[in-house]
Structures are given as C-alpha cells and as structure tokens.
C-alpha cells in the first residue's frame, strides 16, 4: 500500500475526524453558552457574564467543574450499564456530523478536491437517521440502570417519544430526498442552489422543525427530562463527567439538528441566486471560507429560533405529545410526501 493511498483512506479521514471532533466539541460547549446568554436576553436579564470577558470562559469553567466532581454510582444501580450508558448517548450525536458538508469543496490545483466533509457517503441521510436514532439507547439504558423511579419514567417517556417522532421526521426528510433525487447530502445542497427547499417544502420543513425539537428533548417537548415532574428525567442519578456527557450529547444533537436543517431545507452553504462558487472561482480559499460562513450563519439563525421557542412556550403533557406526533404530524408528513411524489412524478418529469 502506497503512502498516497494510505493517506487517502486513513490519514486524511483521521485528520478530518480529529479537526471535526475538536470543532464540534468547541461549538457544542459554546452552544450552551449562547443558549444561556440568549435565554437571559429573552428573559430580560443578562445571563452568564462573570467568567472572562462577557462570560466567554463560562463553558470551560463549567467543564472543569464537572470533571472535578465526584462520579457517584447509586447503590441500586447496575454499575456496568450505568457506566457505559452515557457513551451510547454521546457517540451517535457526534458521529452524525461526519456526513455533513459544511462548505463547498476546496479546489487546490487541477482536479485535486478537498471536500469539507469527513465522508460524503452516498446514503448519507440514511446513515444520519440510523445513527441518531441510536441515541435513544443511551437514554433507555440510563433510565433502566439507575435503579430509580424518576429516571425510569424519563427513559420510558423518552423511548416512546423518540420512536414516535422519528417517523414524521423521516417522512419529512424523505420528501427532501424525493426533490433532490439523492441520499447524498452534498447533492441535496447542490440541488438547492436556486431555491432552498424550505419554500417549496414548507409543510415538510414545519414537520421537521417540530419533530426535531421533540427529538432533541427540548421545550415544549422536553418530557424525558421534564424538570418539574421528573426532577432531571433519565439523568437524575448522574453526576460529574457522566452527567456532562448527557449534557453535551443533548447540545450536540441540537447543533446537529441545526446543521441538518441548514443542509436539507435552508440550502446549506448556498446563497440563492448568487453562484459565488463560479464568481470567485479564482480564489478557492475565499469560496470555502464564504461557504463556511454562510452555513454557520444559517445554522446559528436556526439555533436562535430554537432558543426563542424554549424561552416562550410551556411544556406539553406526555399523552398530548404522543397524540400530536401520531395524529397531527404523521398525517401531515404523509400528505406532504404524497404531494411531493405526485408533483415530482407528473409535473417535473
């Protein structure tokens, strides 16, 4: 095996993975900061502002605190499952980022292309959906192994909630796939160079947003950790770094959902009607930087909306939540899928 092929199949992906992991972990930590800060603004207060300038070192301080805290395993818990459950939660959340293309590929020299994605899998969406649905194992295991009733409740709720909302989520994503004609995320982004899919697929976008909120267990669908009823939900018994894993997993999922929504519905790194890739073809680095910035802005705007929702709405009840999932979102998603399929088949042939 030559050095080149080794680099292509092992070296570059590894480097990309390390960079991506670092960047994503950083982004997730600062998502927590942004969320707390924005929530504060929405609530007429200032949020964390004591540690460092504008409180910017707050996530690092929180991380340090969580690392130094005692790792408690309750007497009733099943120690092995209790220990590994957080890993089940955090790994899928981070793996999902592997297939997202954050920027247009960097063209260096003739034909040498460095895509801004760890691996542009041709069944990217399927990979993403299957990987993210593994996250529920972490929650169910945590609830089961804690040996306590509140986590058990939280995990049972979570399992049914995630299963219920997986279906409308998948159906809404399916309509995007129908429109783009590909499972590959970069193809889907390319298909949106004229118009982001959020406009023609407004129904699917709505369904996606609602089920994404439910998938990431946030208000108004934050029942698994519904603080006022279930204390902390499935992670009630966790402390220290293992709790931090759940915390990070939750926010990694939030960031992931924002990134996926940006790619699928908001046109990814494209600017509608401004083909800046061809305009700036002479400066490939500039193209990539601009693409990255566009992607980031869209993702942050989506995140802002997410936090805005959290700041405004109360929480649904367990049965109401499932009713919405099965009796409102699922029919709408199905209807939308049929409509898109019909249009695609008969009108856009």
């Amino acid at each position: 095996m030559t050095f080149e092929s080794l680099m292509t199949y092992v070296g570059w992906p590894l480097i990309k993975i390390v960079i991506l992991l670092g960047v994503v972990a950083f982004c997730v930590a600062y998502t927590v900061y942004i969320e707390r800060r924005l929530l504060g603004f929405f609530q007429s207060r200032v949020g964390p502002n004591r540690v460092g300038p504008f409180g910017l070192i707050q996530p690092i301080a929180d991380g340090l605190k969580l690392i130094l805290k005692e790792d408690i395993i309750p007497a009733n818990a099943q120690p092995f499952l209790f220990r590994i459950a957080p890993i089940f939660a955090i790994v899928p959340a981070f793996v999902g980022f592997a297939i997202i293309s954050f920027a247009p590929p960097l063209v260096t020299g003739a034909g040498v292309v460095h895509p801004f994605v760890v691996k542009d899998v041709n069944l990217g969406i399927l990979f993403l959906l299957s990987i993210t649905s593994l996250g529920v194992f972490g929650i169910v295991l945590a609830g089961w192994s804690s040996g306590s009733k509140y986590p058990l409740f939280g995990s049972l709720r979570s399992a049914s909630q995630m299963l219920s909302y997986e279906i409308p989520l998948t159906l809404s994503v399916l309509s995007v796939i129908l429109m783009a004609g590909s499972f590959r995320l970069s193809d889907i982004v390319d298909a949106q160079s004229k118009l982001p899919f959020a406009i023609p697929l407004i129904l699917a976008f709505g369904v996606y947003v609602i089920s994404a909120v439910a998938e990431t267990n946030r208000i108004p669908f934050d029942l698994p950790e519904g603080e006022s009823e279930l204390v902390g939900g499935f992670h009630t018994e966790y402390s220290g770094m293992r709790f931090a894993f759940y915390f990070l997993a939750e926010y990694a999922n939030v960031v992931l959902v924002c990134c996926v929504a940006t790619s699928l519905f908001l046109g990814g790194y494209k600017i509608p009607f401004v083909p800046y890739e061809t305009l700036l073809a002479a400066h490939p680095i500039l193209v990539s930087a601009l693409g990255l910035a566009v992607f980031g802005v869209k993702a942050v705007l989506f995140l802002y909306f997410y936090i805005w929702i959290r700041a405004t709405f109360p929480r649904y009840r367990y049965d109401q939540l499932l009713r919405i999932g099965w009796m409102v979102l699922l029919p709408i998603a199905l209807l939308n899928l049929f409509l898109v399929a019909g249009i695609k088949l008969w009108l856009l042939r």
Partner: peptide
C-alpha cells in the same frame, strides 16, 4: 397566538436588561 407569544419574548430581547 404562538406567534404573538414569540413576539413578547422578542420584544424583551431588545429592551435594556433589569439585572
């Protein structure tokens, strides 16, 4: 009605903070 609720929180997003 949800939009008007969002409007209330958005209004205070811009107002000076009371902290």
């Amino acid at each position: 009605e949800l939009a008007s609720g969002l409007g209330v929180t958005f209004k205070w997003f811009h107002k000076p903070k009371v902290t």
